[in-house]
Protein backbone atom coordinates (compact mmCIF):
# COMPACT_ATOMS: atom_id res chain seq x y z
CA UNK A 1 0.00 0.00 0.00
CA UNK A 2 1.48 3.31 -1.13
CA UNK A 3 -0.14 6.65 -0.33
CA UNK A 4 1.15 9.93 -1.78
CA UNK A 5 -0.44 13.16 -0.56
CA UNK A 6 0.27 16.80 -1.52
CA UNK A 7 3.82 15.90 -2.56
CA UNK A 8 6.07 18.52 -4.12
CA UNK A 9 9.79 18.75 -4.66
CA UNK A 10 12.08 21.68 -5.43
CA UNK A 11 15.62 21.86 -6.69
CA UNK A 12 16.54 25.28 -5.44
CA UNK A 13 13.57 27.46 -6.50
CA UNK A 14 12.54 25.23 -9.39
CA UNK A 15 9.64 22.99 -8.65
CA UNK A 16 10.22 19.67 -10.35
CA UNK A 17 7.34 17.68 -8.92
CA UNK A 18 3.80 18.35 -7.84
CA UNK A 19 1.57 15.37 -7.03
CA UNK A 20 -1.62 15.97 -5.07
CA UNK A 21 -2.85 12.45 -4.57
CA UNK A 22 -1.77 8.96 -5.68
CA UNK A 23 -2.74 5.65 -4.21
CA UNK A 24 -1.23 2.30 -5.16
CA UNK A 25 -2.68 -0.94 -3.93
CA UNK A 26 -0.19 -3.72 -3.24
CA UNK A 27 0.25 -6.01 -6.23
CA UNK A 28 -0.86 -3.40 -8.78
CA UNK A 29 1.95 -2.63 -11.23
CA UNK A 30 2.10 0.99 -12.34
CA UNK A 31 3.95 2.89 -14.98
CA UNK A 32 4.93 6.48 -14.18
CA UNK A 33 5.10 8.18 -17.52
CA UNK A 34 6.62 11.54 -18.25
CA UNK A 35 9.00 13.42 -20.48
CA UNK A 36 12.43 14.17 -19.20
CA UNK A 37 12.22 16.82 -16.52
CA UNK A 38 8.67 15.93 -15.62
CA UNK A 39 9.73 14.68 -12.20
CA UNK A 40 9.21 10.95 -12.69
CA UNK A 41 12.70 10.02 -11.55
CA UNK A 42 12.37 12.45 -8.65
CA UNK A 43 9.11 10.76 -7.66
CA UNK A 44 10.69 7.32 -7.90
CA UNK A 45 13.69 8.40 -5.84
CA UNK A 46 11.41 9.94 -3.21
CA UNK A 47 9.45 6.69 -2.96
CA UNK A 48 12.68 4.73 -2.92
CA UNK A 49 14.08 6.90 -0.16
CA UNK A 50 17.04 8.11 -2.25
CA UNK A 51 15.68 11.64 -1.81
CA UNK A 52 14.19 13.06 1.37
CA UNK A 53 10.60 14.26 1.27
CA UNK A 54 10.48 18.08 1.34
CA UNK A 55 6.75 18.78 1.54
CA UNK A 56 3.84 16.40 1.53
CA UNK A 57 3.51 12.81 2.60
CA UNK A 58 4.62 9.41 1.33
CA UNK A 59 3.28 6.48 3.25
CA UNK A 60 4.43 2.96 2.43
CA UNK A 61 3.00 -0.02 4.23
CA UNK A 62 1.58 2.46 6.71
CA UNK A 63 5.00 4.02 7.36
CA UNK A 64 5.50 7.74 6.74
CA UNK A 65 8.94 7.55 5.22
CA UNK A 66 9.51 11.30 5.57
CA UNK A 67 9.55 10.81 9.32
CA UNK A 68 12.38 8.28 9.26
CA UNK A 69 15.94 9.27 10.07
CA UNK A 70 18.34 8.80 7.20
CA UNK A 71 19.74 5.69 8.83
CA UNK A 72 16.25 4.25 9.36
CA UNK A 73 15.43 5.18 5.78
CA UNK A 74 18.51 3.25 4.59
CA UNK A 75 17.36 0.19 6.46
CA UNK A 76 13.77 0.61 5.32
CA UNK A 77 14.93 0.78 1.72
CA UNK A 78 17.25 -2.16 2.05
CA UNK A 79 14.46 -4.26 3.47
CA UNK A 80 11.41 -3.18 1.51
CA UNK A 81 12.49 -1.71 -1.79
CA UNK A 82 14.34 -3.18 -4.74
CA UNK A 83 15.75 -0.76 -7.30
CA UNK A 84 16.54 -1.33 -10.97
CA UNK A 85 18.21 1.38 -13.03
CA UNK A 86 18.64 2.14 -16.70
CA UNK A 87 22.09 0.57 -16.52
CA UNK A 88 22.70 -2.54 -14.47
CA UNK A 89 25.42 -0.90 -12.31
CA UNK A 90 26.85 -4.17 -11.16
CA UNK A 91 30.07 -3.94 -9.17
CA UNK A 92 32.58 -4.61 -11.92
CA UNK A 93 35.25 -6.15 -9.68
CA UNK A 94 32.96 -8.85 -8.29
CA UNK A 95 31.49 -11.93 -9.94
CA UNK A 96 27.76 -12.31 -10.53
CA UNK A 97 27.49 -14.44 -7.41
CA UNK A 98 29.51 -11.99 -5.36
CA UNK A 99 27.32 -9.14 -6.55
CA UNK A 100 24.30 -10.91 -5.14
CA UNK A 101 26.07 -11.82 -1.90
CA UNK A 102 27.08 -8.16 -1.62
CA UNK A 103 23.39 -7.16 -1.69
CA UNK A 104 22.57 -9.66 1.04
CA UNK A 105 25.51 -8.52 3.13
CA UNK A 106 24.85 -4.78 2.78
CA UNK A 107 21.17 -5.14 3.68
CA UNK A 108 22.15 -7.03 6.80
CA UNK A 109 20.63 -10.30 5.62
CA UNK A 110 22.09 -13.71 6.00
CA UNK A 111 24.35 -14.56 3.06
CA UNK A 112 22.89 -17.60 1.40
CA UNK A 113 24.53 -18.86 -1.73
CA UNK A 114 21.68 -21.33 -2.31
CA UNK A 115 19.14 -18.48 -2.45
CA UNK A 116 21.31 -16.56 -4.93
CA UNK A 117 21.82 -19.66 -7.00
CA UNK A 118 18.12 -20.46 -7.14
CA UNK A 119 17.29 -16.91 -8.13
CA UNK A 120 19.87 -16.86 -10.90
CA UNK A 121 18.62 -20.22 -12.08
CA UNK A 122 15.10 -18.86 -12.38
CA UNK A 123 16.55 -16.17 -14.64
CA UNK A 124 18.50 -18.74 -16.71
CA UNK A 125 21.74 -17.23 -15.42
CA UNK A 126 23.14 -20.15 -13.43
CA UNK A 127 25.86 -20.68 -16.02
CA UNK A 128 27.21 -17.19 -15.37
CA UNK A 129 27.63 -17.49 -11.63
CA UNK A 130 31.37 -16.95 -11.67
CA UNK A 131 31.37 -14.52 -14.59
CA UNK A 132 32.37 -10.91 -14.16
CA UNK A 133 29.94 -8.17 -15.31
CA UNK A 134 32.11 -7.24 -18.30
CA UNK A 135 31.71 -10.82 -19.55
CA UNK A 136 27.90 -10.48 -19.66
CA UNK A 137 25.71 -9.16 -22.42
CA UNK A 138 23.57 -6.09 -21.73
CA UNK A 139 20.48 -8.27 -21.31
CA UNK A 140 22.26 -10.69 -18.98
CA UNK A 141 23.61 -7.88 -16.86
CA UNK A 142 20.14 -6.38 -16.65
CA UNK A 143 18.79 -9.73 -15.47
CA UNK A 144 21.42 -9.90 -12.75
CA UNK A 145 20.45 -6.39 -11.73
CA UNK A 146 16.81 -7.48 -11.46
CA UNK A 147 17.88 -10.52 -9.46
CA UNK A 148 19.85 -8.29 -7.13
CA UNK A 149 16.85 -5.98 -6.66
CA UNK A 150 14.59 -8.90 -5.79
CA UNK A 151 17.07 -10.83 -3.69
CA UNK A 152 15.84 -9.57 -0.34
CA UNK A 153 12.20 -10.15 -1.32
CA UNK A 154 11.22 -6.49 -1.20
CA UNK A 155 7.55 -5.47 -1.25
CA UNK A 156 8.27 -2.84 -3.85
CA UNK A 157 10.26 -3.07 -7.05
CA UNK A 158 11.11 0.34 -8.50
CA UNK A 159 12.52 0.54 -12.02
CA UNK A 160 13.94 3.75 -13.47
CA UNK A 161 13.99 3.82 -17.29
CA UNK A 162 14.71 0.10 -17.59
CA UNK A 163 13.98 0.03 -21.30
CA UNK A 164 15.82 3.10 -22.47
CA UNK A 165 18.48 2.31 -25.05
CA UNK A 166 16.90 -1.11 -25.74
CA UNK A 167 15.26 -2.15 -28.98
CA UNK A 168 11.58 -3.13 -29.06
CA UNK A 169 12.21 -6.81 -28.58
CA UNK A 170 14.59 -6.40 -25.66
CA UNK A 171 12.43 -3.69 -24.12
CA UNK A 172 9.43 -6.01 -24.18
CA UNK A 173 11.54 -8.78 -22.67
CA UNK A 174 12.77 -6.59 -19.81
CA UNK A 175 9.29 -5.33 -19.01
CA UNK A 176 7.83 -8.82 -18.98
CA UNK A 177 10.81 -10.00 -16.89
CA UNK A 178 10.09 -7.27 -14.35
CA UNK A 179 6.38 -8.02 -14.34
CA UNK A 180 6.85 -11.76 -13.98
CA UNK A 181 9.51 -11.54 -11.33
CA UNK A 182 7.60 -8.91 -9.36
CA UNK A 183 4.56 -11.12 -9.43
CA UNK A 184 6.52 -14.21 -8.49
CA UNK A 185 8.17 -12.47 -5.54
CA UNK A 186 4.99 -10.71 -4.49
CA UNK A 187 6.43 -7.25 -5.09
CA UNK A 188 4.55 -4.27 -6.43
CA UNK A 189 6.25 -2.95 -9.56
CA UNK A 190 6.56 0.75 -10.32
CA UNK A 191 8.28 1.72 -13.56
CA UNK A 192 9.27 5.32 -14.23
CA UNK A 193 9.85 5.90 -17.93
CA UNK A 194 9.43 8.21 -20.85
CA UNK A 195 9.08 5.15 -23.06
CA UNK A 196 5.52 4.93 -24.40
CA UNK A 197 6.13 1.27 -25.31
CA UNK A 198 6.04 0.27 -21.67
CA UNK A 199 2.49 1.59 -21.23
CA UNK A 200 1.05 -1.13 -23.42
CA UNK A 201 2.24 -3.82 -20.96
CA UNK A 202 0.81 -2.30 -17.78
CA UNK A 203 -2.72 -1.53 -16.78
CA UNK A 204 -2.15 1.46 -14.51
CA UNK A 205 -0.44 4.62 -15.65
CA UNK A 206 0.43 7.84 -13.86
CA UNK A 207 1.18 10.43 -16.54
CA UNK A 208 3.19 13.19 -14.90
CA UNK A 209 3.39 15.26 -18.10
CA UNK A 210 -0.35 15.61 -18.26
CA UNK A 211 -0.62 16.12 -14.53
CA UNK A 212 1.82 18.98 -14.33
CA UNK A 213 0.06 20.74 -17.17
CA UNK A 214 -3.36 20.57 -15.66
Amino acid sequence: MLKVDQLSYHYGKTQVLQLDRWDVTAGQPWVILGKSGSGKTTLLHLIGGLLRVQTGLIEMNGQNIGALSSKQLDMFRAKNIGLVFQKPHLVATLTVMQNLLLAQWLSGQKQQKSVCQALLASLQMEAKLQAYPNQLSQGEAQRVAVARALLNRPQWLLADEPTASLDDENAAQVVSLLLNQAQEFGATLLIATHDERVKTHLKHCLDLSSLSKT
Binding site: L50, M75, R77, A103
Partner: peptide, 16 residues
Protein backbone atom coordinates in the same frame (compact mmCIF):
# COMPACT_ATOMS: atom_id res chain seq x y z
CA UNK B 1 30.75 6.67 -7.71
CA UNK B 2 28.03 4.47 -9.24
CA UNK B 3 29.17 1.45 -7.28
CA UNK B 4 29.12 3.42 -4.08
CA UNK B 5 25.69 4.90 -4.83
CA UNK B 6 24.30 1.46 -5.66
CA UNK B 7 25.79 0.02 -2.52
CA UNK B 8 24.15 2.81 -0.58
CA UNK B 9 20.77 1.87 -2.11
CA UNK B 10 21.44 -1.72 -1.11
CA UNK B 11 21.71 -0.63 2.50
CA UNK B 12 25.38 0.22 2.95
CA UNK B 13 26.00 2.99 5.45
CA UNK B 14 28.42 5.78 4.64
CA UNK B 15 30.69 4.58 7.40
CA UNK B 16 30.74 1.09 5.92
Amino acid sequence: RYDLAIMRTLGASQLQ
